[in-house]
């Protein structure tokens, strides 16, 4: 455990099983959010102008005030 950061990480996350478990759960949660939003952003970039959400604004009328209704 050379650096202070490694020591702190060890003391906070790995020293106690309860902290370890909470760390795994929180880490999985954070990773999923980060991974999904990054992947979705890349996907939307690769498919710019092709998906329904890109062309929807052309067809939506004033009557369709609830925007969530025709999302996929």
């Amino acid at each position: 455990m050379a650096s202070a950061l490694a020591r702190t990480t060890y003391n906070v996350f790995f020293r106690r099983s309860s902290n370890y478990l909470v760390g795994i759960f929180a880490g999985a949660f954070a990773f999923e959010i980060a991974f999904d939003s990054a992947a979705d952003r890349l996907w939307d970039m690769a498919n710019k102008g092709r998906q329904w959400k890109d062309i929807r604004s052309k067809y939506i009328q004033a009557a369709d005030s609830e925007p969530a209704d025709d999302e996929e």
Partner: peptide, 10 residues
């Protein structure tokens, strides 16, 4: 068709 090619009202 809703959310694929048309809006709900269409």
């Amino acid at each position: 068709l809703v959310g694929v090619s048309h809006t709900e009202s269409e």
